[in-house]
Amino acid sequence: MKTNTYLLRLGEVTLKKRNRNWFINNLVRIIKPRVRHLDAKLEKRHKKLLLYTEAPADEVRKALKTVFGLVGVSPIFKTTRDMEDIKKTALELVKPHFESQKSFSVKAKRTQKTYPVKSPDIQRQVAEYLFEHGLNLKVDLKHSELTLLISVEFKETWLSLETWPCLGGLPVSSKNKFGLLLSGGIDSPVAGNLIQKRGGYLEAVYFHTPPFTVESAKDKVIDLAEILSRYQNGFNLHIVNFTEVMKTIKANCHDSLMVVLSRRFMMRVAERIMTEKGGQALVTGESLGQVASQTIENISIANSVVTMPVLRPLIGMDKTEIISWSRKIDAYETSIRPYEDCCSLFAPEEPATRASARKVQHEESKLDINGLVERALEQTESIRLCLD
């Protein structure tokens, strides 16, 4: 059977109360450009969202695979609320699977409790009808491989046999704007994607140091930004020329504090950019203790130069978990391209793992902090990446 109707399962969004419509409207805004080429229409129901399209099911699934806020998508088949029609539609839907040898179950629910047949009785009557008409599958009520879902709605009944798993989380909203410090590595794209999963809309800031970092390194970061842009509608990447900052620190400051000092400048610049863009927080890919610069002391020193909150969604994850998520979002192969970022190129042999505020401030007193920040901002290029 072919259908033109899909139930978009909302998951966590349905737990919202007074602001539920706000979340659903955000979800609709995210979905619309993704299904426009399918000539699709969306319909809002109470705690439900339906999508109508004549496009092939594979195309629908592909279009929705990067949408946070959905926990599943079910192709549904509609019929009346009459039990005989429900049974006949169930038979038509299940019959192609009679010889599949899969375990089977029927699960029913009623949106309107005044419907005269109770849910367990719907399940029993439909199952009996199917077995009377040739179904010979093993019944497994808890862990069936083939589950017929029946939902008796207010004016019609929906039946489905499959639900495609989706990403969960909350729909991305441009009102929740976060600035991701995006390097060319594995960690920061994963950190950004985890923020997107909680409804955060990203803009990314990348620090480029030509001629020390090659154009291929910048191209890699643009490709990573493009991957993240698939999870939201529109994506701004700000590319900061950071060469003067890095050279100045290298020439004037103690080598062991190179990483901490450069990190503080990155925070200052990123905060300025995101303040102008209406950002609410910065996001980094740091994981506690993963490398020398990511000790709690150094993280605290970096945080101290900004007033904007700094979120670190990877803080308790190990590298194996981070790599697994990177593969999941198809970012890993791009992240491991052999082009180093500015932090790697300028990293000292023995970086300070427990930098003190007094020493860091002493080294920074040798620098024109405001001037370096302003000139870096003046040399920032912004790229807009849009959903195709």
Rank of each mutant, 00 (worst) to 15 (best):
F207L: 08
L261Q: 05
K48M: 13
S188T: 07
G134A: 02
G169N: 02
T334W: 06
T275H: 12
E297G: 08
G11T: 03
R81Q: 08
I299G: 10
T307S: 14
I186F: 05
A376Q: 01
L194P: 09
Q123T: 11
V306F: 07
M267L: 11
S119W: 07
K87G: 05
I323H: 03
E59L: 11
N193F: 06
Y201P: 07
V205Y: 06
K142F: 10
V260S: 08
S105C: 15
E349L: 15
N252I: 12
I239S: 00
G200T: 01
M1C: 10
L49P: 00
V306M: 08
E364H: 09
L51I: 07
I239A: 00
N4R: 08
I329Y: 00
F68C: 00
S216P: 13
E145D: 12
L7R: 07
I301H: 04
P75C: 14
I150H: 04
L228R: 01
I336H: 04
K32W: 14
T3S: 07
C343V: 04
L181T: 07
V283S: 02
E12D: 10
Q361I: 14
E350N: 15
R358M: 14
Q112L: 15
N236T: 15
L148G: 03
D39K: 15
V94F: 01
K277Q: 13
R354S: 13
G72R: 03
A191E: 05
K16S: 02
P338M: 10
T111W: 13
T334N: 09
V106W: 01
Y52I: 09
P351H: 09
R45G: 15
D187F: 02
V221E: 04
E84N: 15
K88M: 10
E363G: 02
A292I: 11
T307V: 12
I195N: 04
S287K: 00
R358H: 15
T209M: 06
R375A: 06
P189W: 01
H37Q: 15
K17H: 11
